[in-house]
């Protein structure tokens, strides 16, 4: 994988990573660099290891071999370092994973107050700004269970942004949503991309990928099969496996 960029622009460096679930080899010699401000979309059939890969970036999954270096900090089995990386990397999950016992606003304020030790008033103001940005400031005092899926996912994005992350990871953020709610979440993500956020996104939304991605990564059976710019990926895919996948996903 060649990059024309200099090293200091690289914010995520994945070198020779291997991972197994028991005897099952999920990630096979993965090498991938992500530059600051780059938007990477990872796609591939289910079970290809794409979720595992992005979960490895903030250490929700451990890996057995290879190195992952995030913003100059190497991921090793050390609680302090892992927590530093987890603070700097925001994550949005397929199932939203909002905290159901806390109001929407508290969901967003919680980590800034406890992890970053922000003053309560400051955290609250920031939370309201973020909720306003994702368009649900009026729901701030409701509980997550009272919101629609699309609204919950937007709260989840606001919650991640409240920690001022340097990188945002999206793990199939629209896969659990009703079709009519996908757009509202993608709009928020699009806006985030326009503002220069570094994003790694696992998604099947090829329209979104075409529009937003700088780089496309196609994975199959634990390998990165194809790595190219979005334009090349959609217009001239190099690999046969990629062409098959695109054909299926675009003509369904």
């Amino acid at each position: 994988m060649s990059h024309e960029t200099t090293d200091e622009n690289i914010i995520i460096e994945i070198k020779g990573v291997n991972k197994w679930y028991g005897k099952f080899h999920v990630l096979k010699d993965i090498n991938l660099n992500v530059r600051k401000g780059e938007k990477v979309v990872v796609c591939g059939p289910s079970g290809s290891g794409k979720s595992t890969l992005i979960r490895a970036i903030n250490y929700l999954e451990t890996h057995e071999e290879g190195d992952i270096i995030v913003d100059g900090v190497k991921l090793v089995d050390d609680v302090k370092r892992i927590q530093k990386i987890q603070r700097d990397v925001g994550m949005v999950f397929q199932q939203f994973n909002l905290f159901p016992h806390l109001t929407v606003k508290t969901n967003v304020m919680l980590a800034p107050i406890w992890v970053k030790k922000s003053a309560k008033a400051k955290a609250e103001k920031r939370a309201m700004d973020l909720l306003d940005r994702v368009g649900i400031a009026d729901q701030a005092d409701k509980f997550p269970g009272q919101l629609s899926g699309g609204q919950q996912q937007r709260v989840a994005i606001a919650r991640a942004l409240a920690m001022d992350p340097k990188i945002m990871l999206f793990d199939e953020p629209t896969s659990a949503l009703d079709p009519e709610m996908i757009k509202e979440v993608l709009d928020v993500m699009r806006e985030l991309a326009d503002q220069g956020m570094t994003m790694v996104c696992v998604t099947h939304e090829m329209g979104f990928a075409k529009e937003v991605a700088d780089t496309m990564v196609f994975m199959d059976a634990g390998n990165i099969v194809e790595y190219s710019t979005a334009k090349e990926f959609f217009e001239h895919p190099k690999e046969e496996r990629t062409r098959q996948f695109l054909e299926q996903i675009l003509n369904h």
């Binding site: 987890q86 990397v89 994973n97 919680l110 980590a111 992890v115």
Partner: peptide, 8 residues
């Protein structure tokens, strides 16, 4: 996981 991802 969500709590860990927030650095707690």
């Amino acid at each position: 996981e969500a709590a860990r991802a927030l650095g707690m």
